[in-house]
Design a protein around this nucleic acid. Sequence first.
DNA 1: ACGATTTAGTTGCAAAAGTCAACTAAATTG
DNA 2: CAATTTAGTTGACTTTTGCAACTAAATCGT
Lengths: 149, 149
Amino acid sequence: MNTEKPLTYLLGQTMNMVKLKLLSTFKDNSIELTLEHFIILHYLSEKEDLTQQDLANHFLRDKSIILRQINTLIDLRYIVRITDKDDKRKKNLILTKKGYDMLVTARQTAEKISAELLTGVTEEELIHFENVIQKIQHNTGHKNEGCNC
Amino acid sequence: MNTEKPLTYLLGQTMNMVKLKLLSTFKDNSIELTLEHFIILHYLSEKEDLTQQDLANHFLRDKSIILRQINTLIDLRYIVRITDKDDKRKKNLILTKKGYDMLVTARQTAEKISAELLTGVTEEELIHFENVIQKIQHNTGHKNEGCNC
DNA sequence: ACGATTTAGTTGCAAAAGTCAACTAAATTG
DNA sequence: CAATTTAGTTGACTTTTGCAACTAAATCGT
């Protein structure tokens, strides 16, 4: 299995272009979210009672980074942090209505951009693409928490 | 064309995992290169007489960021910066022997990791994958300088 | 020809992101 | 119940990034 360009080259370059595109569209639509904030909100909307440690594991980031990002999302009133009733060390992160509304708006924009960037890509190709992405993620050896299997 | 997860989510997450994997392997093999430095060296090895502005355009980064990255690569004696003989504003960036040797070593590691991360991916899937990546890059609207067409 | 504009590179400054170790409080282990 | 582990927090520090201003060289328009 050999690519003419390093995998990091392909992924990094593409990611960067997609990110720039999305952030500029966010700006055009007055959506004041960084990409990381958007992704955190998205993840929080999918799972209940996530803790900061959960996010740190999932996104492979230091927990102090997650903490500070959560802090700014709390300042924006997009989420709240409440102590877990069973384990008082843990803090559950809960999406607020305001946060959800912002997420919906941002997600609409993101989906529009996604669709735009995937024009010319057939359904079959997309399935292959996502399949490869998933295999790569699996091969990194980090346990996939999203599989629920 | 619709993904259940935002495109940025798929790409960003994967990129992050691949990056962590590659950087830790670099460290294990005493390769003192950031991902950006590796990618810049790789690009410089492919084209002659590139300027900093060329790199800034290609990687869609601010030219001051490129300048600083180039500065550290020069400090490491991996590249040299010489004034263009025709246009004294421009500086051509030239890979040194030392830089090339480092690139070869890093590239070997990167290829090993790429192969590892692509285990289980068929040749056909990989072709589809690269095809989709290319279409995405094309759809961002940034002119592709690599096409030479 | 020459003043105005553009381009490539550089610098400084401030904001953001990431690193790392230390610390508190709660839970778990043996 | 003492020792260890876990979740979260804080502080200090470095790196990275983004933006605007600036210099020098080239180009453009008349």
